[in-house]
Amino acid sequence: MTTDEPGSVADQMVPTDQGELAVYEVFAQTSERGTVEWQASLLAGSPAMALMLARENFLRRREIFDLWVVPRDAVARAEGADELFRLPKTYREVSDYQYLVGKWRQYHQQAMTRDTMA
C-alpha cells in the first residue's frame, strides 16, 4: 500500500476523532492454526497508531499471523451474568453420552465370550 492511496496507513495516522486518545482492544492470532485472541488494551489516537503500539508493546517476541485493533467503544458486549447464563442443557454435552463407552465395552466382551465358546 503506498502512502498516496486513500485509506493507507499514513492516512490513518491522522486522527479522525475529536482529538482524544481512545482505548483500543488488541487481538492477535499467534499461531497458524490458532484463533484470534484478545491480548491487551492500549491508548492511541488512531487505528494505525494502535497497530504500531500493539506490535511494539506486546508482540515483539512472537510470530503473529493476524493483528486487529478495535476501539473499545465499537465493541457490543452482553449485559452481564443474566445474559450470559445458560440453562443446563446436558443433552448438548458429550459427557451426557459417556455411558456409550461402557455399553460398547459390554457388547465387545459378550461377542468375544461367544467367539471363545464357539
Binding site: 491522522v14 486522527p15 479522525t16 475529536q18 482529538g19 482524544e20 486518545l21 492511541a44 489516537g45 488512531s46 497508531m49
Partner: peptide, 9 residues
Amino acid sequence: VRDVMSATR
C-alpha cells in the same frame, strides 16, 4: 508527540 498523535484536526 502526544499532542500530534491526539490532536484535533
